[in-house]
């Protein structure tokens, strides 16, 4: 283990935490947006990521240049999110929340099996261009994988853009209003259906962006790959305070930092239990702050 006193060690941890946290934040924000407008924990969110990765692979196999592959995968994710809302969720609006939840499981299982049929259950390599896989050595023993830079820059742009959208535009404000009080929003002429579709489109696009970084990390894709990301996104949302965009972003970065810290600080024999520890800490956080970090502040304010 590296010396805890060396600044290099901490800088390395910070780089890793920001890289991983950016991915989690992008994944969590879509889950939070959909929860906001629909009160649905969309477990099919991870399946959208999986499908988006396969769309990317197909485009890559067509010989498309990588920027177009990335755009195609993100657009594909957004389209799939919209389609999912249309087919699986909109018809059961007004039904008890548990119906929506069950439908999201159904969509997840269905899409995963479609992927198994089409592409076989085996993992496939996803060749990433060198700009994403290169590792810089900025000095000393520091490693700066370019994927961390891309993930951080991508998250900054995408989440910053989202922040501007929900605070500066009429539609973005309408989306937040509908998430907070759908009845009052409707009484002002806001169409819940419209902002719901928008939340699915934007949230799924964010997931499509995140899965590019995730895939570059892992190197391969498979039909079951969506499970872990959606679980991480869920945990991030719970940590940050469920259903709010800032909560999801904060939770994403906190979760990233937590995982990296445990990875770096735990003795070698215990590192394998990292995820168990993460979930243990999650339970502790919820015992102290049941509404999540930001949710707690919210509750105090009112």
């Amino acid at each position: 283990m590296q010396a805890l006193s060396s600044p290099e060690f901490w800088i390395q941890q910070l780089i890793n935490a920001l890289g991983l946290g950016s991915q989690y934040a992008l994944m969590a924000v879509g889950l939070a947006m959909v929860f906001g407008v629909m009160r649905l924990i969309n477990f099919a969110h991870g399946t959208v990521m999986m499908a988006s990765a396969y769309i990317g692979l197909l485009l890559l196999q067509q010989g498309m240049p990588f920027p177009l592959v990335a755009l195609g995968a993100i657009a594909g994710a957004a389209a799939l999110g919209v389609l999912m809302e249309r087919i699986a969720y909109r018809p059961v609006r007004g039904a008890p929340d548990v119906v929506l939840l069950l439908n999201s499981f159904a969509v997840a299982v269905l899409l995963e099996n479609v992927a198994i049929l089409l592409f076989s259950p085996r993992s496939r390599p996803f060749p990433m261009p060198e700009v994403l896989t290169r590792v810089f050595h900025p000095g000393g023993n520091l490693f700066l994988p370019s994927i961390h830079l891309w993930a951080f820059g991508g998250a900054l742009l995408a989440l910053g853009g989202l922040g501007l959208f929900v605070t500066r535009t009429r539609l973005g404000l309408a989306m937040r209003a509908a998430a907070e009080n759908p009845t009052a929003a409707q009484l002002l002429g806001i169409e819940i259906g419209k902002v719901t579709v928008l939340a699915f489109a934007i949230g799924s696009a964010m997931a499509g962006l995140a899965v590019l970084f995730w895939t570059a990390h892992v190197g391969t894709i498979n039909p079951g790959m969506g499970f872990e990301p959606v679980l991480k996104a869920f945990v991030a949302c719970v940590i940050g305070g469920f259903g709010t965009i800032p909560g999801a972003v904060l939770g994403g970065y906190l979760l990233g930092a937590l995982e990296i810290a445990l990875q770096g600080l735990l003795p070698a024999g215990v590192v394998g239990y990292r995820d168990a520890l993460v979930y243990g800490i999650l339970i502790l956080i919820l015992l102290v702050r049941p509404g999540g970090v930001l949710g707690y502040l919210e509750a105090e304010r009112v």
């Binding site: 209003a177 002429g189 806001i190």
Partner: peptide
């Protein structure tokens, strides 16, 4: 336009954002 019982303002939004949404239509 209905101003509903219990006010039903958007508490997480700023006063200005609430007003802007009033003009949504």
């Amino acid at each position: 336009i209905q101003c509903p019982e219990g006010r039903q303002i958007f508490k997480n939004l700023t006063v200005r954002e609430n007003l802007i949404l009033g003009g949504y239509r």
